[in-house]
Design a binder for these strands. Structure first.
Lengths: 325, 325
DNA sequence: CTCGATATGCTCAAGATGAGCATAGGAGAT
DNA sequence: ATCTCCTATGCTCATCTTGAGCATATCGAG
């Protein structure tokens, strides 16, 4: 049975000051050149790592000094030539990606926290519909659609662009982060699409926008795809599992909770309805104590109510009162 | 970088005559003995399989003659000693499991279709709360809880049993298939738990019910765990993506649609509300033609409405009017 | 043409959601 | 002291969704 190497990637998420952040390290790209942002990653040690997530925890500890708590498997990436070294005799690299949620924010080594919306500016609707959508994405996707050879394919590309980016009257669906990234990749609007094609020797003239990638931070290899997978999964999970609390201190105000949910989902919520939902769902419990750092009337401090797991089949925060863009 | 072997597993689902079926093959267990049920599986060929799902399609074709359509990655299983051959010098085996939905039901080789509820009888609530819950599962889990060494651990086991199996007044959550299977595994109520412990040389006296596994069909290795993962994922996905239609002929009556949803989710639905939901959601479109095989008033034939993908962010069938057990 | 069976239409109460008004209770400025 | 600016928190109300069930339609079989 032929062999392959198993890699482990971690998307480590924290939210501080209303900014969702992910932990990155700096790595030289395999083809040489200046260091790029990367997710913490490393190989599984088949001899010593009893389970995949233990291997992951070991690697993260070694690279960043962080002890992970909540961890969840995301997806396994195994296309050939994810890493260009494969074409030069390297082994087939299959990577298992994980999502981790943490509270702490002190890291060591070359690790640093970055706002995840630097990598996906079009995903943050908290200040309204991002301008990059109309200004850059919509016209570039229209050029992409127009250059398809068949009328049928042009139609399909337009439809896809409208559905995933909420153009032409279609509603925005926050969870489709990965579909949006993949559409941009196929349209040649992210620099890694071009880089990958060059490395594979397929530098055709095909996608029209190769010269002007969108204003967003890139990552090494396919790490931005992994990040998009993580963001989409987390946004979805928020709605039916009480995972936000992994990102909050043990005690918090309802506005803090709301801000974290907003940071992750990328939309602003209606405050009163948010509280009603969270309280009626029995997700939280007042402590009687107050937080006077609010700059206004002091807010009550709440804790997560574990019993909710007994009472409700799928307790999550939902997104009450999303402001329609 | 040390190497490992990549395996690919397929959970292939079809629904015929209101029975959800999965495709199994017969395989000798690694330790010898009579053949057991297994999921179609085989190694990734790093040289020839460009992507993981291509490798999977190739293997399924070779083993069963089936061409897969809809395919979705489920989970990657990588614990050490999933396959006992590892302890005898074999390579570390990491398996990527996939879910596939098909319509066709003719297969070749030693492949055969099996009712998936044979493997999980407690998951089928269509004829009311399964008797095995009260008769066997609840008391066995209580024994398991009672034998925990610490009072705290006893409490935690009871709570877990109640939450995942809907005991003691907790509502049944159809999606938690995997959590239920894993609870039974830890409690020693499925034969593979005992088998794995013996193979690892840990045949302690610890779980109390080792002698009397539940009346359910087992599978080789950890394939029943993979199957539980698939069932849970499919039940969840049903609610927010129009995947049922992958299992139906292009044209169908609303009752056929309802029966397939019921077969998968394991609960009976309120008919009128189901139609209202499905029609209001714009998931289907009448064709004007009728099916007169109903044994009653002829039913209109419907088709899936692709446009729904444009209109709704998360179109799925939901489960309106679940009869509370 | 009546029975049994299923399809399909409709109603109605209860609950959830979207949106906004109104009041409460702090801190800092005047 | 009191005014002003904040944020917290309580409450209302129209609208939509859901759960449940009644009533009627339309077929085949006897």
């Amino acid at each position: 049975m032929p062999d392959a190497a198993i890699g482990l990637n971690a998307v480590i998420v924290a939210v501080t000051e209303e900014v969702p952040r992910i932990l990155t390290v700096r790595r030289e790209p395999p083809s040489g050149g200046p260091p790029e942002d990367a997710l913490p990653f490393g190989p599984l040690e088949p001899e010593t790592d009893r389970t995949l997530d233990r291997g992951l925890r070991r690697w993260v500890r070694e690279q960043t000094g962080l002890e992970l708590g909540y961890v969840e498997q995301l997806y396994t990436f195994g296309d050939r030539n994810r890493d260009p070294r494969e074409s030069h005799g390297g082994p087939r690299l299959v990577s298992v990606a994980y999502l981790a949620l943490v509270r702490e924010v002190s890291v060591s080594g070359d690790a640093r926290w970055r706002d995840w919306y630097e990598f996906f500016p079009w995903e943050d609707w908290r200040a309204g519909r991002p301008a990059v959508l109309e200004r850059a994405i919509a016209p570039a996707l229209e050029r992409w659609a127009a250059t398809a050879p068949e009328p049928r394919a042009r139609q399909e590309r337009r439809e896809r662009a409208e559905i995933v980016f909420g153009l032409g009257g279609v509603a925005w669906d926050g969870d489709r982060v990965l579909e949006r990234y993949e559409t941009l990749y196929e349209a040649g609007l992210v620099p890694e699409a071009r880089r990958d094609r060059i490395e594979r020797g397929e530098a055709g003239s095909f996608p029209p926008d190769d010269g002007q990638p969108l204003p967003a931070r890139a990552m090494t290899l396919d790490h931005r795809r992994i990040l998009a997978t993580a963001l989409g999964r987390l946004r979805g999970k928020l709605k039916y599992r009480p995972v936000v609390f992994e990102l909050l201190p043990p005690t918090f105000t309802l506005l803090q909770l709301q801000r974290v949910v907003e940071a992750l989902s990328g939309v602003r919520l209606h405050k009163q309805n948010f509280r009603r939902l969270v309280e009626n769902a029995g997700l939280v419990e007042g402590t009687g104590r107050q937080d006077s750092q609010t700059g206004g009337r002091p807010a009550e401090l709440f804790v997560f109510r574990r019993e909710v797991l007994r009472e409700r089949p799928a307790p999550g925060v939902g997104l009450p009162g999303v402001r329609r863009g």
